[in-house]
Each structure stands twice: as structure tokens, then as C-alpha cells.
Design a protein around this nucleic acid. Structure first.
Ligand SMILES: Nc1nc2c(ncn2[C@H]2C[C@H](O)[C@@H](COP(=O)(O)OP(=O)(O)OP(=O)(O)O)O2)c(=O)[nH]1
Ligand SMILES: [Mg+2]
Ligand SMILES: [Mg+2]
Ligand SMILES: [Zn+2]
Length: 586
DNA sequence: GCCGTTTTCGGCCCGACTGTTTTCAGTCG
């Protein structure tokens, strides 16, 4: 067997790279062939790409453990695709793809990234003008050569230049927390319009993804026209991209796109299902509908011409023989099968957290006193917080030494005497050193109510060393919780390399709790790690990482992340009252 | 190319918006 695993194989066979190969195959199959079946073969590659991109396990690992047979167990991967994956893992290339690329040598990501430019356009542009990339396209548009291409006009040529500019500004997906206030503000304006019954941000916002590509508003109203009027003329709108009787598309001044769908009340459920997605989840539902002799779209569930459901989402799912599924689970990653068996887990609810176990004060890098943080938490509806200031080796953050931590613990006890119906726990965010040891002595940590530990330095150790560093911290009997275990900052830096599966296993063996840091820049653990952890029976906590009382609002995003990882209330220890929480820790 | 509680062959989600389409193709949600 392939012991020694990947040693001899190409280092680039990461899931993301394999998915990219599949997408390129999908694109070139669609473009390059006249075969009427080409679009379906193309879609097969795209489906495989999506599956692989969101697979928690490494495809290269699967291959090294179980070979082709292992690959075939991946949904949407059959003999042909498995062989191509094998070839890519072994050689770093896929011959068939190289051949296709030679025939249409274009930068797919660049050209496809431009709105309104799809496969047909890219092929046409290459055939007529030898356009290979963005720079070529910009040049021919500026030179006025584009208008000569069939299907193009002077106006389209002009639009193209605008779209190229927009693409070049390169707006990545937005972090949900950063635009949440804007999302909610527009949602409220829409809901207050006369004649509007419901207004909600659907799409990836309703699924509470950590980043969102655009904002998708669904509104029910008997007369869509005034809603469309308002939406396209809001002060936030920079440009109207499209507008029809049911849908409108705008670009907001903040650089993000917003879509609007307006439907009558009797289509609320089906439209909400459609517009919440995910696409993959919806396609699966629509296939189920077909197999039951039904048709599902945003307007309802139909048997022939007759509408049989659509007023509520529950009704839509029921018509398909399914239990209702929480939006956060709708990613086509096993939730539909559970719903068919009426086994959808009861996810941890928003607003059920009783405490927050990562809270900073001005004594390290926070901006409020311990008492202000405590009163803020109480006002937010919490019953307890752990004050987790940084420790001495994190000098930049004003970390405390052992002596100072003990003094702080004493002050916290005095404060608790003054606080009614609220408890502050003495704790710390202890810095994990390069070798996995802690920068505070055990005899100090023993006097705290609980201890969190985290990595804040040496991010570029090799994966084995980084993993062992966290493992050593988890094995330390003083450490109750590992904070932000992967260290990632969304859209800023990847986490340090770490074998999260091993960390999860060790957490299980040592009764160490893992954190979901709810700060919207972190959301760490991320959704799929949450799912892995709870599957193994590891307990989690959801913390705000607050540095000011207003930051308790971040907890919502942490709960969302837990729900996206299918966590129930039993999995989340800070849904417990403080005494029971402390008993549950090691 | 993938896949099978009606199929190992014959299907593959389905509709809105744009443009110049005169009855639909391309792109996107
Ligand atoms: N049935 C069907 N629904 C789709 C398709 N594409 C998009 N949708 C639905 C599901 C999506 O969640 C919803 C909004 O589309 P978006 O492109 O905005 O995707 P979404 O919001 O999920 O992700 P995003 O963060 O915006 O990239 O529209 C499709 O091809 N078929
Ligand atoms: Mg969206
Ligand atoms: Mg959208
Ligand atoms: Zn930290």
C-alpha cells in the first residue's frame, strides 16, 4: 500500500487546486465542443469541483489511503474524474486539460470574472480577436474593435470597459459582520414600505456565511412596482444594473451588489426557499420534486399546472416529504437526507448563551474596565463573563504577569460582591510559547476560575510543530479552553498550518474545550471544524473576544457559525449557568 | 460525466433579465 503517503507526490494537490482543474475542465468542455451532451459533461466537472472544494478531507489523503476506490466514494466523482484526479496528484498535470487549454489558451478566471461574460463570449472573443486575457479585452474595447464582433454594439463595448474597471477594483467577498448594519438598515427600510408584508435578507446572509458575495432581499407585496422603485432609487444605490417586473439588481456605493426579488404573499415560502439557497441545496430539492412528479421554483410547488404549496417554507419542505431545514444547514452536505428521515438536529438557538468566556479589559488590550465589561454583559443579557486579559509575553497587548493576574483575580472577587445576579470569572488568555509551554506558572493558573490558551506568535512553524504546540497546550491540565484554535483572520491571513483533526482528537482525550471565537474577522473554529469537533464529542464554547461592551453583539456570528457546524445546545458549554459550566471544565 | 426506493440508459433545476431576439441565446440568480 501507499505507506509514506504523499511524500513522492506533487505538493500542489490541495483540494482547491484540484477543484480549479475540474472547473477548467468544465469550462473548456462547455466551450470547446458542439456535442449536445457537452453542457452536461461540463456540469459534471463543475459539480465535482464544488464537491471537492467544500470537502473537509484532503482529496490527496483520500487517494493515498484508499486509491481510486476512495476517490470514487466522493459524490459526483466517477471513473473518468477519479482517473484525472489520480493523474493530477501523481504528475501535477492532466493531459486532457492541457490539450484543451492549447486550443483555447485564455485566462479563464480573468475573463469569466467579468460580469456578463460567459463561455460563448470568451470563445467568440478568442476566435475573432485572439483575446486571451483581461489586458487584451481592455485593449480591443478601447481600440473600438469589439463592436465589430457579432453580438456586440458600441454600447456593449462601452459597458465592457466599465465592467473591466469594476473587476479590476477586485472586491473580494465581504465579511458578514462588517456590512451587517447596512444589511439590516436596508431590510428595515424595505419592510416599512406601504404594501410590504415581509422583507428579509435571504441568500448567504440568511445562511449566515462568514463572507457574502452580495445581499439578496426578498420582499412580499401585492404590487411590486413601488418596491422596485424605492429599491433602485435608495440613496445607497450607485448604479442600477438591471430591473424587471420581479427582480432588480443594484450596485451600492459601498461597492457591494444588492439583489431584490418581489413576490406575492402566496409565494413567500417558495421564494424564500429559492432565494436562501444554497444553489446546490435547491437543485437537490428540485430533483426531489421531479422524482415526486412535482415542479419546484420560486413561485411555488406545482403538480402540473396546479399549485400545491408555497405559502410557507415548512409547507414547501413538507410537500417534498422533508422536515424544515434551518438556513445555516442548507449547503447540500447531508442535511436533506437527515430531513427525509426527520432527523434534523435541534441547533443551538440564537440568544441562548448565558456567558462569554473570552473578554478583555483595559488591563491588557481592551478599552473598558472589568466592571464596565461586566455591566455591559449584563445589559446584553448574559449571566457571567470570564475576564481573559493577555499574558506577559504578549507585550504589545499589555499582557499581565502572574502577580498581576492574581491581583486581578482578587479585585474580581470584590467586584462580584457588588454585582447583583451576575458573576465575573477570573481567567486569562494565556500565551502559548513556541514550544507549547505557557508563559504563566501552573500555580498561578490554578488560582483562576478557568484558563484559556492561544497562539499569537510563530505562525510559520511547520505543520507538525504547530500541531504539537497546540497538543502540548491541550494536554496541560491547567488549560480549559483553546482560544481561536487556527489563528486565521478572514480575508487577511490563513490560519497557521495545523492538523486540526489531531487537535480535535487530543481535545477529546484531554477534555479540553475548543472555542468558536465569534469576532467576525475570526470565526475560528470555522463551520466545518465545528462539525468535525462535535462529531467527535468535543465540547465547544462561543466567545465574543470583546474588547469593549459593544462587542458582545459579535456573539450572534459565533452562534451562527456553531449552527453552520450543526451544533446543538448540548455541544456549547456556555449555554450552561456558571456553576455547571465550571463543573464541566477539566 | 454521473447516477439509479420507478432507470445501468437516458435523463440532468428552473426562471428572470438583457439585447435587437422577430421567437431566442446568453448570462445570471
Ligand atoms: N435554483 C437556483 N437557484 C439559484 C441559482 N443561483 C442562485 N440561486 C439562488 C440561491 C442563492 O442562494 C440565491 C442568491 O444567489 P447568490 O448568487 O447571491 O448566492 P448566495 O447568496 O448563496 O451566495 P453569495 O454570498 O451571494 O455568493 O439565489 C441557480 O443556478 N439555481
Ligand atoms: Mg448572495
Ligand atoms: Mg445575489
Ligand atoms: Zn487572542
Amino acid at each position: 500500500m501507499l505507506r509514506g503517503g504523499l511524500a513522492g507526490y506533487c505538493c500542489l494537490a490541495k483540494n482547491a487546486n484540484i477543484a480549479k482543474v475540474m472547473r477548467d475542465l468544465g469550462f473548456l468542455t462547455e466551450v470547446g465542443e458542439d456535442d449536445p451532451n457537452a453542457q452536461f459533461r461540463s456540469r459534471a466537472y463543475y459539480r465535482a469541483a464544488d464537491t471537492i472544494a467544500s470537502l473537509p478531507e484532503d482529496v490527496a489523503d483520500i487517494y493515498s489511503k484508499n486509491g481510486i476506490k476512495g476517490l470514487l466514494e466522493i459524490p459526483s466523482v466517477g471513473k473518468n474524474i477519479a482517473a484525472k484526479i489520480e493523474e493530477y496528484i501523481k504528475t501535477g498535470k492532466v493531459r486532457a486539460l492541457e490539450d484543451m487549454k492549447a486550443k483555447l489558451p485564455v485566462n479563464i478566471d480573468e475573463l469569466y470574472g467579468i460580469e456578463g461574460v460567459g463561455p460563448k463570449t470568451i470563445k467568440m472573443l478568442y476566435d475573432k480577436l485572439r483575446v486571451k486575457n483581461l489586458a487584451d479585452l481592455e485593449r480591443v474595447a478601447k481600440e473600438g474593435k469589439l463592436r465589430a464582433v457579432p453580438g456586440f454594439t458600441e454600447k456593449k463595448e462601452h459597458d465592457m470597459l466599465k465592467r473591466i474597471e469594476f473587476f479590476k477594483r477586485g472586491k473580494s467577498r465581504r465579511i458578514i459582520g462588517e456590512i451587517y448594519p447596512l444589511i439590516k438598515q436596508i431590510e428595515k427600510s424595505l419592510s416599512q414600505l406601504p404594501g410590504v408584508k415581509n422583507a428579509i435578507a435571504a441568500g448567504s446572509v440568511r445562511r449566515m456565511k462568514e463572507t457574502i458575495g452580495d445581499i439578496d432581499y426578498l420582499v412580499t407585496a401585492s404590487d411590486p412596482e413601488p418596491v422596485m422603485e424605492f429599491f433602485t432609487k435608495m440613496p445607497e444605490v450607485q448604479e442600477v444594473v438591471g430591473k424587471g417586473p420581479a427582480k432588480a439588481f443594484v450596485r451600492l456605493a459601498s461597492g457591494i451588489d444588492a439583489d431584490l426579488l418581489v413576490v406575492p404573499e402566496e409565494s413567500w415560502g417558495s421564494a424564500l426557499q429559492y432565494f436562501t439557497g444554497s444553489k446546490e441545496h435547491s437543485v437537490e430539492l428540485r430533483k426531489m420534486a421531479i422524482s415526486k412528479g412535482l415542479r419546484l421554483n420560486e413561485w411555488g410547488v406545482y403538480r402540473g399546472e396546479r399549485k400545491v404549496a408555497g405559502t410557507t417554507e415548512e409547507e414547501v419542505y413538507q410537500a417534498l416529504g422533508l422536515q424544515w431545514i434551518p438556513p445555516e444547514m442548507r449547503e447540500n452536505s447531508g442535511e436533506i437526507e437527515l430531513a427525509r428521515q426527520s432527523r434534523v438536529p435541534k441547533l443551538v438557538e440564537y440568544g441562548t448563551l448565558k456567558g462569554d468566556l473570552q473578554v478583555h479589559s483595559e488591563n491588557s488590550d481592551g478599552t473598558a474596565t472589568i466592571e464596565e465589561m461586566a455591566r455591559g454583559a449584563k445589559a446584553f443579557g448574559l449571566d457571567y463573563v470570564a475576564i481573559t486579559d493577555h499574558t506577559k509575553s504578549l507585550a504589545l497587548a499589555g499582557g499581565l504577569d502572574g502577580q498581576e493576574l492574581l491581583q486581578q483575580a482578587n479585585k474580581i472577587r470584590e467586584l462580584n460582591d457588588r454585582l447583583e445576579g451576575f458573576r465575573v470569572l477570573a481567567s486569562a488568555e494565556v500565551n502559548i510559547m513556541k514550544d507549547g509551554s505557557l508563559d504563566i506558572a501552573d500555580n498561578v493558573l490554578d488560582k483562576l476560575d478557568l484558563v484559556g490558551a492561544a497562539i499569537h506568535s510563530h505562525f510559520n512553524l511547520p505543520i507538525e510543530a504547530q500541531t504539537e504546540r497546540l497538543v502540548r497546550a491541550a494536554k496541560n491540565s491547567s488549560v480549559d479552553i483553546l482560544f481561536h484554535p487556527t489563528g486565521r483572520l478572514i480575508n487577511k491571513r490563513d490560519g497557521y498550518p495545523v492538523n486540526i483533526e489531531r487537535v480535535i482528537d487530543v481535545a477529546k482525550d484531554t477534555d479540553t474545550v475548543l472555542e468558536i471565537d465569534a469576532h467576525y474577522d475570526r470565526l475560528d473554529l470555522r463551520d466545518e471544524h465545528v462539525r468535525m469537533a462535535i462529531k467527535k464529542g468535543v465540547k465547544l464554547v462561543i466567545d465574543s473576544d470583546a474588547h469593549h461592551p459593544i462587542h458582545y453583539a459579535f456573539l450572534t456570528f459565533g452562534v451562527a457559525q456553531a449552527r453552520r457546524g450543526w451544533a446543538t445546545q448540548q455541544d456549547i458549554l456556555n449555554t450552561l449557568p456558571p456553576e455547571r459550566l465550571l463543573q464541566a471544565l477539566k
